[in-house]
């Protein structure tokens, strides 16, 4: 059974009831890959809905630069090319370090160092115990590397620079489950990360977490004039993106955020959600969240899983409560859509 305190248990039950009531009223419509859901999984879900409702994304999205799409970054998980080798699951990821231009706002163009043309880089996702193989090709001029958080042998630690035009293949076991990250570890790391060479690395526990609308939110800063301070900030690479285009979510839907603070130069930033409390799963190292808060403090490279659902509809902000950082681009809205799909 869940290890909630009494009051939290009540909260959770209420939210289950809400969803069940909705189901019984036939309001939660959708298609589901029923064949893929075994009965046992339904049983295991113990009353939790096994379907997840994600309101459709807006058709039109602003174009910011080569391949940068904050709404796509949000829910896009790269599971790699899966093969079986010697009886194990191997996930192969291919990334190319490149340089490219990014229009951060109308008056600021920024030259990124990126992976596969994106800032942040792809969100790699695997299950604990999988073999990870990352084929890293550096075509970005400077020497770069990929240093993964999580465990691995010293030879795979990614602090050794990979020269321009060279390939390095990182290979290790995906351990332990949780939310991790990767980034270039060539000095000055502030510049290599600040230019865009970072991304999230999610390792799922062997037993999948309960279904939810899952999203990645990575906070980062941009030093646009080389003064070792950030002039602009962003969630998922693009300042103010989710202010201009709020993230649609479904009322009463369990939301699971994978949040990472990748801001250089400022030692710490918080994550704050309006009009709600989230349940914190620190570094994603637990199978269930452990406590509630509406502000969580993260040093650079710290990351957590945050879970919540909104009972109320409407627009609710999220942002670091270092308000200068928020106002310089690191803020956004969830747009909670009512139970009836519109």
């Amino acid at each position: 059974m869940r290890r909630w305190t009494q009051s939290k248990t009540v909260d959770i039950k209420q939210s289950f009831l809400n969803r069940r009531q909705l189901l019984q009223a036939g309001l939660l419509l959708g298609v589901t890959g029923a064949g893929a859901i075994g009965l046992s999984q339904l049983w295991r879900s113990r009353g939790r809905s096994t379907t997840v409702t994600i309101p459709p994304l807006p058709q039109e999205e602003m174009h910011h630069g080569a391949g940068i799409s904050p709404l796509k970054v949000l829910r896009e998980f790269d599971y790699g090319t899966v093969t079986q080798e010697n009886g194990r699951t191997v996930r192969e990821f291919r990334v190319e370090a490149q340089t490219g231009e990014l229009q951060l706002n109308k008056s600021t163009k920024f030259i990124t160092w990126n992976l596969n043309g994106r800032v942040p880089g792809p969100t790699f996702r695997a299950t604990a115990g999988d073999r990870i193989r990352v084929i890293f090709y550096n075509k970005a001029g400077h020497s770069h590397s990929l240093h993964f958080h999580g465990t691995h042998p010293a030879a795979m630690d990614g602090v050794k620079p990979v020269r321009n035009g060279n390939v390095f293949i990182y290979e290790f076991d995906a351990e332990p489950y949780g939310v991790h990250l990767y980034h270039c570890h060539v000095a000055p790391v502030t510049r290599h990360i600040g230019k865009g060479l970072y991304g999230m690395f999610i390792i799922d526990p062997p037993q999948p977490r309960p279904p939810a609308d899952e999203m990645v939110l990575i906070m980062a800063g941009y030093d646009t004039n080389g003064d070792n301070k950030n002039e602009l900030y962003a969630f998922n690479g693009m300042p103010h993106a989710y202010m201009h285009q709020p993230i649609p979510i479904q009322q009463n839907q369990l939301i699971r955020l994978y949040v990472l603070n990748m801001i250089e130069f400022d030692p710490v930033a918080t994550f704050h959600l309006h009009a709600n409390l989230f349940r914190v799963n620190p570094t994603g190292r637990l199978l269930e969240p452990s406590y509630e808060a509406d502000v969580i403090t993260m040093g650079t490279a710290e990351r957590h899983i945050l879970e919540f659902s909104f009972k109320e509809t409407g627009k609710f902000m999220f942002h670091p409560h270092q308000d200068g950082i928020a106002e310089a681009g690191c803020m956004g809205y969830f747009d909670v859509i009512s139970g009836l799909p519109s």
Binding site: A36, T51, D78, Y79, R94, P341
Partner: peptide
């Protein structure tokens, strides 16, 4: 059948490469 996108709860995803 609705407009919403629904995601099955298993973790297998199509390969992206």
């Amino acid at each position: 059948c609705g407009l919403a996108i629904l995601v099955a709860c298993n973790n297998q995803a199509p390969s992206t490469s």
